[in-house]
Design a protein around this nucleic acid. Structure first.
Length: 258
DNA sequence: TGGAATGTTCGGCT
DNA sequence: AAGCCGAACATTCC
């Protein structure tokens, strides 16, 4: 499930391979993968590879290719086209295949760099973060997952961040003190930093552009750990459903306060 | 066999 | 307007 750390890892493994190189062939193998019109890409040079939230963005001559990986999307360097390859970009020295078993992902074209989502969680400052969190009445978990609020956090990141900050996922954002918001901000930054340093989390089948899995799942404290002892206090990790999302937390370390 | 689980976004409802 | 909830997507697992 590529979230911000996985998208960041893909960008870092892919950029040195393709920046400055010309696309010689572009194929879209299903109609679903490109729901909006994409112009002819052949002959365009990749100027930059970046990330926008969980999306991987290729800056080409004349526009931007936004690749949304969703649940099962992968970008593989030199990946031979397989049964799940939905798009294919060939260069002189190799190729990228966009593989996506469940076909929730997409490749979209836009003429400008995207700006339709919230702040990047690694860039937002503590003061601005605190102010915007406390202005909302929603529960913390759905708020942090809302890409219009912050771009890039997914279910894994949020469960791990809330555990690190010792905050219950159902806590109302408006009821958190400013000092606890600062703690949450720091937990968010450190969790993302640690996850990126580990190359992201490989649950299900995530691998980077070189086919290498991430290692952050080895450091998960609560995500998918229901029934197991909390690494801090030994209490049983609990699983609840919040906004239709499986949510794991420690009922002792993360006490509900509202 | 079929129903639940999976993560994310979107549309509709309150 | 903000927030909540169900639908939809495709596949695997039990």
């Amino acid at each position: 499930m590529p979230e911000l750390p996985e998208a960041e890892t893909i960008v870092r493994t892919l950029a040195p391979r393709i920046v400055g190189h010309k696309i010689l062939e572009a194929r879209f193998l299903t109609a679903r993968v490109s729901p909006t019109a994409v112009p002819d890409l052949v002959g365009r040079v990749v100027r930059r590879v970046g990330r926008y939230g969980k999306q991987v963005v290729f800056e080409l001559d004349g526009g931007f290719l936004r690749i949304e990986l969703r649940m099962t999307g992968l970008l593989l360097w030199r990946g031979a086209p397989g049964p799940y390859t939905r798009a294919w970009f060939r260069f002189a020295h190799g190729a990228i295949s966009f593989d996506d078993i469940r076909q929730f992902g997409s490749v979209r074209w836009s003429e400008s760099f995207p700006d339709d989502l919230g702040s990047d969680p690694r860039e937002i400052g503590a003061a601005e973060f605190t102010q915007s969190v406390r202005a909302r009445s929603r529960r913390l978990k759905p708020l942090l997952l809302d890409q219009r609020f912050l771009r890039g956090l997914g279910n894994i990141c949020v469960d791990e961040i809330l555990f690190r900050a010792r905050l219950h996922p159902l806590t109302r954002a408006s009821r958190i003190s400013a000092s606890r918001c600062y703690v949450l901000h720091e937990a968010m930054r450190r969790t993302l930093e640690d996850s990126i340093a580990a190359g992201g989390s490989s649950v299900s089948d995530y691998v980077d552009a070189d086919g290498k899995p991430g290692r952050f799942q080895l450091q998960h404290q609560v995500y998918r750990k229901a029934g197991r002892p909390c690494p801090q206090c030994g209490a049983r990790i609990r699983r609840i459903v919040v906004g239709q999302r499986g949510t794991c937390y420690c009922p002792h370390c993360q006490r509900q306060r509202s």
